Computed example of a mutant assay.
Amino acid sequence: MAGEFVARSLEETRFWSRIMKEHSLFLRLGFRCEDTQLINEANQFYSIFEAIENRANAFTLGTDPSVIRRFNEEVHNAVSHIWAFKRKVLGLILSCKLPGGNNFPLLVDHVSREANYFRNRLEDLNMGRMEPLPDAIIDENVFFLRIMADHAKFISHLLDPSERSLVEQANNFSEEFDSLLFQARELDFMRPQSQTVPLLDQFLDQNRVSVKSLRDFKKTARDLIEACRIKSIIHPLLADHVFREAEHFLVIIDLFEASLTGQSAG
């Protein structure tokens, strides 16, 4: 169990600390030139999470669990602060105190939801809490399906309007994932009666197919953006960022499938 705790802690922190670091960059890029205090705060968070990422990568599976538990507490504190920063920024935008900025309110809410998710994961790890598999399958999919739906909307709005085919594809993905999210929430409302192995297995299979399609679309978009072959205001790192989150979701789906059916993930 100690080895599993260390492995899961490092896996979560290595992935999400990089995500938090990149959120800091994306928010900074969306601030106006005169928003110097917000820019400085974003830069500080970038440095904090870059240091956390480096420390997480330096630990090994043989690291003393007590060291990892203290590290998780430090990271939890940093994540709580960046969550508060993101919510502050959202409040400023929604009260029209940052006119002319380029951070969509939904994007700021989106990145704050991811910070809260990461914070909760760290708490669960340190407390030794583990949701029953049927509950975890539904809760994780509800969370990540909403994240994927948001990504499709961001891509659609950040592509140049003249990229009609790609905009249409992104809008179609947005509608598809909104529908999948509604289905997931309906499964949620029907629990515990909905938590049969056949229903959950079908739920995972259906979501996997859609996430793979979106992942492939994101990969194509990323490659085209990096090669300067399409018109957009999407930062190349943002394109790679959303691709990695889709890949992460697929790993989670496969792990759930393996636990549900007793087969090897792969």
Rank of each mutant, 00 (worst) to 15 (best):
N103S: 11
K88C: 05
F104A: 09
G91R: 13
I82Y: 00
P105N: 07
N102Q: 15
S95M: 09
R87N: 11
V108Q: 00
L106C: 07
L107D: 05
S112G: 14
F118H: 12
G100V: 06
S112C: 14
G101N: 13
N116V: 10
G100S: 06
F104E: 08
E114H: 15
P99D: 05
S95F: 05
V111K: 00
L92H: 06
L92G: 06
W83R: 13
K88R: 15
S95L: 05
F85Y: 15
N102D: 13
P99K: 08
L90S: 01
C96H: 15
G100T: 10
R113A: 04
V89M: 10
L94A: 09
H110Q: 11
A115Y: 01
L107K: 10
S95E: 11
R113D: 04
F85S: 01
F104R: 05
P105W: 07
N103V: 10
G101P: 00
E114W: 09
V108M: 02
F85E: 04
L94W: 04
I93G: 01
R113V: 02
N102A: 11
I82Q: 14
K97Y: 02
N116E: 14
F104Y: 14
S95G: 06
A115C: 11
V111D: 00
L90A: 06
L107M: 15
I82M: 07
I82A: 02
R113C: 04
L106K: 10
F118Y: 15
L106W: 05
L90I: 03
K97R: 14
S112P: 08
D109K: 12
K88S: 12
S112I: 07
K88A: 08
L92Q: 12
R87L: 09
G100L: 06
F118C: 06
S112A: 15
I93N: 00
G101I: 10
V108D: 01
L106P: 01
L90H: 10
C96Y: 12
L98Y: 08
I82G: 00
C96P: 00
V108C: 04
P105Y: 06
G91S: 10
L106Y: 09
R87H: 11
G91W: 07
C96W: 08
L98D: 01
N102V: 05
C96R: 15
G91D: 08
R87C: 04
L107V: 14
G100E: 03
L92T: 03
L98G: 03
C96A: 14
Y117Q: 01
F104T: 02
N116S: 14
S112N: 11
L106E: 11
I82F: 06
G91H: 09
C96Q: 14
V108E: 00
K88Y: 15
V111P: 01
K88L: 12
E114I: 11
I82C: 03
I82H: 02
L107A: 12
L90D: 00
R113F: 06
A84P: 01
F118W: 07
